[in-house]
Write a protein that binds this DNA or RNA. Sequence first.
DNA 1: ATTGGGACCTGCTCGC
DNA 2: TGCGAGCAGGTCCCAA
Length: 279
Amino acid sequence: MPELPEIEIIKRDLGPLVAGRKIVKVKIIPDPGGIRALRRYPSQQKFSRRVKGSIIKEVKRRAKYLLFPLSTGDSLIIHLGMSGQLLYRGQTGRLEKFTRLIFKLDNGHELRFVDPRKFGEIYLYSVKKGDTEIEPSALGPEPLGKGFTTASLRSILKGRGRPIKALLMDQRQISGIGNIYSDEILFMAGIHPLRPASFLGEEEIKHLYQAIREILTKAIKYRGTSVRDYRNGFGNSGGFQSRLMVYQRGAERCLRCQGIVRSLKIQGRTCCFCPRCQS
DNA sequence: ATTGGGACCTGCTCGC
DNA sequence: TGCGAGCAGGTCCCAA
């Protein structure tokens, strides 16, 4: 479900609420198909034991991952997959359908991991030796980070023959961008999604860089995009969906030129673009 | 080394 | 109204 802006909003919402809170109990909802959220972790019992009693020091974000450094030295790492939500709720509230895991806090509230499609994952990562097997795979630079420049983008594109759209969504190259924002970024930059990455000229690289920064920044400003499932830490929708220019607008008229927005499959994902505005 | 395709899940919408 | 097909903010794994 969520890309960088949505995760960033959840981080900002949850941070002040859960930082300094102790996790007094971990409740895992039984599932006949197995607890898929913990599939990278060897044992549910061990997971609960290691998390219980620890204090959440802060909430951080890396790419599309939420990180919760704990007082024990471990870090709880949560990825929401396609349809996941992490909700901060009072204990009295009705439990959402597809709640998979609950972290009960010492202030009477709880963090609920809700995940209909079970694509989400929870890791417990320790810097201690012999416990690195649950570290997320290598991630590319943060596109909103200080270190990410037109020069870094240029070097990422260099020698890559694949469609620029596919490259933007590759977390090992640049992290945090998914299907919605890659469509929007390419529209803003005026670049056709199938263009081979290495064929972009210097001007196009500059436009692409600016579009990456601007789209992601704006999406955060408007609190993310809710197409269907995305909710922030309070269960509220985002506000960027009304500002989308091409995503999910296939066969509709382009908001800029009135031409017809086209759609095609790239890397198994539906990609929308305007052939007149993007070349 | 890179790249594309299928698999993993469940629910919803659309067309017949 | 009912049913199947196709689609959905992601990532891993494998084969070419």
